[in-house]
Design a protein around this nucleic acid. Sequence first.
RNA 1: GCCCCCAUCGUCUAGGGGCCCAGGACGAAGCCCUCUCAAGGCUUAAACUGGAGUUCGAAUCUCCAUGGGGGCACCA
Length: 496
Amino acid sequence: MVEANRPARVRVAPSPTGHMHLATARTALYDYLLARKTGGKFVLRIEDTDVRRTVPGSEQEIMDGLRWLGLEYDEGPDIGGAFGPYRQTERREIYQQHSDLLVTTGHAYPCFCTPERLEKMRQEQQRSKLPSHYDGLCRRLDPDEAASRVAHGEKHVIRFKMPKEGTTTARDLLRGDIVLENSNIDDYVLLKSDGLPTYHLAAMVDDHLMQITHVLRGAEWLSTFPLHVNIVRAFGWDEPEWIHLSLFLKPSGKGKLSKRDASEAIKDGYSVFVKDLADLGFVPEGVLNWIVLMGWGVAEDDVLTVSQMIEKFDVRHLTASPAAIDFAKLDHFNGTHIRLLTDAGLAARIKPFFIKAGLEVQDEALIKIVPLIKERITTLDEAVDMAGFFFRSVPEPGPEELLGKNLTALQSLAVVRESTAVVETLEPFDARTAEPALRAMVERMGLAPGAAFGILRIALTGQKVSPPLFESMEVIGRDTVLRRLRAAAAILTKST
RNA sequence: GCCCCCAUCGUCUAGGGGCCCAGGACGAAGCCCUCUCAAGGCUUAAACUGGAGUUCGAAUCUCCAUGGGGGCACCA
């Protein structure tokens, strides 16, 4: 058992085959926390050995995603490191050497079976309800004969020669010993006929060469876990600490996340892809807090900054059971972390959203607006809906919108006119002077504050829901306030 | 079909034999605050899958059943 405080070398090893998923982000987060907690290293390795499935731009998306989240890696394809290269297609020779080594030591063998034969074999096995495993045809070949066929350039793969007797005991940090009959483990392909390795070889070789101490990976690897342990042992290497992370389930809890769930989420303003999250108005702090708790629990105080996560994190307390994702919680943590931001920090983050909406933003006004909306938004983009009226003219309200609750048009008009008079005489004009003056006015008129202020809210912001009235008036400024009040008065006059 | 993993409120989880007639958070409901909406405060409803063991004692240990999930590729 590895000591808890030994500096850990951990890696996240995604395949660049599509958009970076939340599960990758979570693995990276746990890696990062473990590395930072122990004073170790966090490395990014790109597992691009399936050349056909590799999608251009995907690798960049992974690196951008990690950086956006703030999960800076210490070694990786773009920054290098002492154990590079960090892209598996650039490590071809390394895998071939290791594959050769296993063949020489009798732990692996060349296989000349064609895909067609294998397909036929599987169909027959399925028909007779047998487990579908390689039937071992080439395993029985004479090694010298096999070697000479290879030397003559015959197309082949290298398979692992799994022991047929006995059992394999693999130890997972979270689940304890997993014991499996060796006869249940197939002779998996290690090296493909294109000369590139499969995951089974590449990941084992790299984790060893890169001196990875803790392997955090998805639970989908559990079924091949004993195979991996056998490969590592065949090389005679020490095993890392193995930690299989629980899978993410769709929000309903039924089944794992699918492509279809991904598009459903987008329709609701959410996403399971890291690259979408920023545009949707989520902040990395909120996303991190959300995913860190899907598979790990703290007893209390579950609002966590990254440094608090590092402080509290313990791999041994990760959860083994699958977790259904819940976007309502994303909203909650996002809103919470927005409120934790400084005003200047929030201002900087919402500014791009105003600009994207085509609004001209003045920084002096923006910084005054931030405290008014901070508690009212759960995603950054909502700032535009909430406070866009500060930067553009308000749409002309209809006369019925300008009617106060339970008030006639005449009464509503009176409110607007009286308010205009108050605003004109206030000195100075700000929230502190406006509130008492307008409250006194409403009382004088014998009206309900809510009804009267509702009229002003519509007139000044064009919205039924807005930041606090008096503070908003101050930011809008006297001139604009008067202009908007007069426009409202004109509309109400027309309708009486 | 075969193999593996998992199992506490609707959801994420705390819990590692007595501290638990099970704690927190999200969500829900209600109240307070209140110029709208939020935020905040208070309160309520809500769970140990079932059955056998072990034990003086089990949410916690064992077994079985059930349910859920994953895997069975020259994909990762």
